[in-house]
């Protein structure tokens, strides 16, 4: 059990679980938003703001879970802003997303400055690996409760989208706004709510970054995870369950570098740092097509037109 390969695989398993959690939250949130026919590219900013608010909240109140809640609320504020602005005619949701990305990051850096130094109480992980006497496996299976919250949220959302009245309304709005209006649904209201809820989830993803892994707040905390998660939704073909699987895949890819480092392979460190971005791009190239729009794409999405 202590061969280098086993160590790397175990480290990748642990890394996949840890690294995937923020991807998962952002992707599931974005999935809900896109299901209603709107794209919010600003979740990178939401993620960073969520991380900052969670850290500050946990530091101020002493309760990390309160920090998580505050991060979600901060995320929903940004989501609501996006939702309200994009409701106006002639406003481009992709461009607003870019603006929200810059705005969210700026606000997070501005208010986050005093929290770079102090140490805030972090979320306690559940030692699922305690049964094993292998220390590596034990630490790999130290799973943060937010991981399970994310998986449950994805499963619940997937079920609700398929089986509930609310889910039907969201899907109708996403597939044909005209049809939704014809049966008396307020398209703007639905999209506002889904963008707000998406922001809430992305904020919680940020809380995981600052309160669990890597577990501190600094300005380089998120470098593109929010953006990659948005790309991941395309790969997951707008299904919350597949978003979880895609996030795990990405987590695994992101964990290759640190896993190799743990057995002393430091060469190509920067290459492995770039691996998730390259993987995202590769997946986008592989799953897109110039001839037809992606499978299962909500018909109202700007990308589909």
């Amino acid at each position: 059990m202590n061969t280098p390969l086993a160590i790397v695989l175990i480290a990748m398993l642990g890394g996949a679980i840890r690294v995937s959690t923020p991807f998962m939250f952002v992707a599931v949130g974005e999935c809900l938003t896109e299901k209603s026919g709107r794209i919010n590219l600003g979740l990178e900013g939401t993620l960073v703001l969520g991380a900052m608010v969670a850290y500050a909240g946990s530091y101020r109140t002493g309760s990390p879970w309160l920090g998580v809640l505050l991060a979600g609320l901060a995320g929903s504020c940004l989501g609501a802003m996006h939702g309200v602005i994009c409701k106006l005619p002639r406003v481009n949701d992709v461009a607003v997303g870019i603006a929200m990305m810059l705005f969210g990051t700026g606000v997070a850096f501005f208010f986050g400055k005093p929290y770079i130094q102090p140490t805030a109480p972090r979320l306690v992980s559940i030692p699922l690996g305690a049964w094993s006497d292998n220390a590596d496996l034990g630490s790999a299976l130290n799973v943060n409760p937010l991981f399970f919250v994310g998986v449950l949220a994805a499963l619940a959302l997937g079920w609700a989208l398929r089986n509930t009245r609310w889910g039907l309304i969201v899907r109708t709005v996403g597939d044909s706004a005209a049809a939704a209006r014809a049966i008396g649904i307020s398209v703007d209201l639905v999209r506002f709510l889904t963008t707000t809820a998406g922001g809430f989830l992305a904020g919680i993803g940020g809380a995981f970054l600052s309160l669990s892994y890597p577990g501190s707040w600094n300005q380089g905390l998120s470098s593109g995870q929010g953006l990659m998660a948005v790309a991941l939704v395309i790969f997951a073909r707008w299904s919350p369950e597949r978003c979880v699987l895609a996030a795990l895949l990405f987590g695994g890819a992101g964990a290759i570098g640190p896993a190799l480092q743990s057995i002393g392979v430091t060469q190509g460190y920067y290459f492995f740092n770039a691996a998730p971005y390259i993987l995202t791009l590769g997946i986008m190239v592989a799953t897109s097509s110039a001839k037809r729009s992606a499978r299962d794409i909500p018909g109202e999405l700007a990308m589909a037109k």
Binding site: L41, L227, A231, T280, L281, M284, A290
Partner: peptide, 10 residues
Amino acid sequence: GVNETISSLL
């Protein structure tokens, strides 16, 4: 047909 906004930022 890759979304150019996302790919250029990646």
